[in-house]
């Protein structure tokens, strides 16, 4: 459902993505790992349409259409969702209002009827329960004053409500304690299905014990330098990222 070909992206004339190729099939879960600064978040943001990154080469096909032609909102309406590494705080906008507006715009674009406040609340309650989230979060301003863990859960909660077809998660595990990690992973796993693909970006292998991927890719210096099955994650965990540097330098890339 997603094909990335030779994707190059830069910001302020600094090239960050330097030729990414990736193929994600329907229902598959792909993990992208890599050291800090390798371009994981940039890739995720480019897929979501962040304009501060300029795509200088390559293409991205989503369900056969040219993704890069779409505005961020149109991508979301087409079923793409990004769980941010650093979710933005929006003072004065309640989580409920925000999420219901989002859901209804997406529904409208799909020719569905809008959901009223009552039905939305019922839906939200159901999803909150799965994530073991406090209902009080609904009435607070979006992410404002949320703890790190609350922010991450809120991202997954939004994903659960919006039910995207392609869910991209950028370090949804970072900064979580093991209990929170399990809950978030449980939330993500409950959304797995044959009609939904996922790209799980993580710096640590730990998350992949709970969200078991079909494929693992290693992003290094703006390129995918190694791809494999879930076992690759374990290899990375035991060897660290250091050996990659040597391999890349020696030209032994996968």
């Amino acid at each position: 459902m997603l094909t990335i070909k030779n994707l190059h992206a830069s910001t302020n004339s600094k090239e960050i993505l330097r030729g990414i190729d990736l193929e994600v099939g329907l229902g598959e879960v792909h993990a992208i790992m890599g050291p800090n600064g390798s371009g994981k978040s940039t890739l995720a943001q480019v897929l979501a349409g962040r304009e501060v990154y300029e795509v200088t080469d390559g293409e991205v096909l989503y369900d056969g259409q040219n993704l890069l032609d779409l505005s961020p909102e149109d991508r979301a309406r087409a079923g793409i969702f990004l769980a941010f590494q650093y979710p933005v705080e929006i003072p004065g906008v309640s989580n409920t209002y925000f999420l219901r507006s989002a859901l209804n715009t997406i529904r409208k674009s799909q020719g569905l009827t809008e959901i009223d406040a009552m039905d939305f609340l019922a839906l939200a309650r159901k999803k909150l329960k799965v994530l073991d989230m406090d209902e009080a979060l609904m009435n607070r301003s979006v992410n404002e004053g949320f703890s790190g863990g609350e922010k991450k859960r809120n991202e997954i909660f939004q994903m659960a409500i919006l039910e995207p077809r392609l869910a991209i998660q950028d370090e949804t595990d970072s900064g979580l304690d093991i209990d929170a990690l399990k809950e978030v992973a449980h939330g993500v796993n409950s959304l797995r299905g044959p009609e939904r693909s996922m790209i799980v970006v993580t710096h640590y292998q730990r998350l992949l014990n709970y969200i078991v991927p079909d494929f693992v890719h290693v992003l290094y210096n703006g390129r995918i330098v190694k791809s494999g099955k879930k076992e690759l994650a374990l290899e990375l965990e035991s060897k660290g990222y250091g050996w990659l540097e040597e391999e890349v330098a020696a030209g032994h890339t996968a």
């Binding site: 979301a76 933005v88 929006i90 004065g92 906008v93």
Partner: peptide, 29 residues
């Protein structure tokens, strides 16, 4: 705030609506 605009848009909310929501919140305070 451009980051907030992008966050809203990434959830399907159109750009002019996103601006309106943020402006409203600023003033509603």
């Amino acid at each position: 705030d451009q980051e907030a605009i992008f966050y809203l848009r990434s959830r399907g909310i159109g750009i002019s609506e996103a601006r309106k929501i943020l402006t409203f919140a600023f003033a509603n305070d």
